[in-house]
Design a protein around this nucleic acid. Structure first.
Lengths: 143, 143
DNA sequence: AAATAATGGTTGTATGTACAACCGAATGTT
DNA sequence: AACATTCGGTTGTACATACAACCATTATTT
């Protein structure tokens, strides 16, 4: 039998990156109906569920660096999905009506993404794998 | 008990991306002694182990798109790590002495990366997780 | 109160990656 | 032989993300 495995398939760097790319692509397809990229959709969900959240809070919830959050918020502000209000040294982020309007579509796309990969991997396997990956990410981050 | 879990930790998109970022950062640290970025090191390993490999072959082994391979090879050619030789419509990539010289250091850094995450996750867990992730990536890619 | 440090955020620049459009070479069809 | 198709690769452009340097604002120390 000729299993054509990659010579790097035993390396977590390689496999994690490969999975990230493939699931990101799937997500882009699913979120396309919303007209907003997946990472931006996560931002909108975060802000919708916690209006007035601080930039640093977003960074924490989304596990991203502050500079990345600035960039995401910036772009969504340009497109009038959110509004930034500076209060002293803090920056508070609020959703606009536009976000509230697309919110249901975002949730639906997100559900569809779930369904889609669960169908391929098996629901239980998917859930389990997701949990293991999350646990590993946390442990490795704490280094 | 106050487990501070992310609201998105049940989503494979989120967890896979988070893991990818954290392991990539670790890899950057380890491969820093080589002076070559992780993805470029993988390219060099690939070319070293198969001198004269075609661009498409690199794409397959590394699970990347052709355009990405062009970019990687381009950059390593600029730095004289590899040489491209066009043969009709094919492009063959050869390692130079520079690659052969750093190859041992690359292998060593790669080993160190393994050790480092295995230490955090446990060797067996790491191996198992890597395998599961790879399997999932393959299945999802086949869509 | 002045000087210093810490905190929160933004900006310039860089990396990894992809898609779509393209170009030249090879192959197939009439 | 002329044309069309396919194949392999490159290029323009874009996105997600980060780091390091920076700028305000707030807190701490002297």
């Amino acid at each position: 039998m000729t299993e054509k495995k990659s010579p790097y398939c035993g390396c977590l760097l390689y496999t994690a990156n490969a999975l990230s790319r493939v699931i990101t692509k799937m997500a882009e397809e699913e979120f396309a109906v919303v007209g907003v990229a997946p990472s931006h959709c996560f931002l909108l969900m975060t802000v919708h569920n916690d209006p007035g959240i601080q930039a640093s809070g977003i960074a924490e919830k989304m596990m991203l660096t502050p500079s990345t959050v600035t960039r995401l918020v910036e772009k969504m502000e340009q497109q009038r999905y959110v509004q930034r209000i500076t209060d002293g040294k803090y920056t508070l982020v609020y959703p606009t009506k536009k976000t509230n309007d697309v919110y249901p579509a975002i949730l639906e796309s997100w559900q569809n993404l779930f369904r889609r990969y669960a169908e391929v991997l098996g629901e239980e396997v998917a859930r389990q794998l997701t949990a293991e990956i999350y646990s590993a990410a946390l442990k490795l981050e704490a280094r």
